[in-house]
Amino acid sequence: MKWSVLLLQAGLSQAALRFGCSSVSIQRLDPLVEPGNIPSSHVHQIVGGNAFNATMTGDIGEKGSCTTCAYSEDFSNYWTAAMYFKHKNGSYHRVPIFPNAQLGYEGQNASDIKGGMTVYYTQESFDSNGAQHITAFPPGFRMTVGNPGVTSLNGTRPGLRYTCLQTILTRGSETPDLPSRPCPAGIMAIHHFPACWDGKNVDSPDHQSHMFSTTKGGFRVADPCPASHPIRTPQVAYETLWNTTAFADMWRPEDNDDDDDDGNNGSQPFVWSYNDAKGYGTHADYVFGWKGDSLQRAMNDSCMFHGCGSPGMQGVLKTQTVAEMNACAVKSTVDEEVEGWLDELPGYPME
């Protein structure tokens, strides 16, 4: 089977990696922020290698047997909070994820990808690989971006944004909070990680201090790294597409109000699994798990998107088919329902 990736815009020279990963698990585990806790405080949607578990240490690239990512040498794990729809009767339902329509596979629709997200490793921008050497993350590396405790616009940061999709191909028009009106084609959540490393620590107590962000968001050229964090790493970014249209017949903006203290902002019914209806606390986690020197090979090669490799085509990276991506999964270790109509958000019992 041959893989072809459609360009974001004709005429742009696109740098580095852009690929899909199907879902490997949806459950309440967080091995970075809450290692060993079964369950963690809120539900996450996770993609990547099947070594994902409540306690992850060492080089996970050598511990998994399969991955849900298109590049078969990538056993990293990528995750964000899950999104839920809050019905006006007080019940909740997880919002389904749909795949990026710009990831096309010959003889197979992008819709065959099982949920998941689009992952980017860019070097400078979509227009250039830049002149800097890009250092791949070392084994054991991990980081987070964002903070679920942020409750106001003042606490938000560049690169953590939302797009109200007018069509499945809409890009741009980013906002720091969840859209306040129905989006015709769903909501895209965007997470840009910092790309300046201190060169010493693979983690830090807050999972962020060993990194420094100079990103401006929107895949624009970032500012130079500071002396405290001089090593330029790949710019990791996630795009997750939430099919909020599945609930289009169940709400109107005027159905919601601000008369209670349920966290709803009075204009839309979608909440993150950590009970955030405004969206300022959006966050994401990353655990590096590329096998051997595979990511560094790609960064040294300066290949662009599908030029880095695809089924039936030679490239610097090995790839797999959508069927192989979808076949990889992690069994839930948390005995609770996270699907269907729920009386309360998992981990947030009604008082």
Rank of each mutant, 00 (worst) to 15 (best):
H229W: 10
C164R: 00
P148G: 05
H210Q: 04
I168T: 05
P234C: 08
H210P: 05
T214H: 14
Y162C: 00
H133E: 08
F126R: 08
L153N: 09
G217N: 12
E124I: 08
C225Q: 04
K216Q: 11
I134S: 03
P226R: 15
P176K: 00
N201L: 03
K216H: 13
F141T: 14
R171D: 14
V119Y: 01
L160D: 01
P148D: 15
H229T: 07
M211T: 02
S228P: 11
D198P: 01
Y121W: 10
S128V: 12
T135K: 08
V221T: 08
D223F: 06
D112Q: 11
N201Q: 11
P194Y: 11
K114H: 04
T175G: 03
S180E: 13
K200I: 12
P230A: 12
V119C: 02
F137N: 13
Y120K: 03
R171Y: 11
G186W: 00
G116Q: 03
E106Q: 03
D203Y: 04
V145H: 12
T156K: 12
K114N: 06
H133M: 13
V221C: 14
P205V: 07
M211L: 10
T215Q: 09
T167L: 08
R220D: 15
P158D: 07
S209M: 03
L165F: 02
D177I: 10
P182R: 12
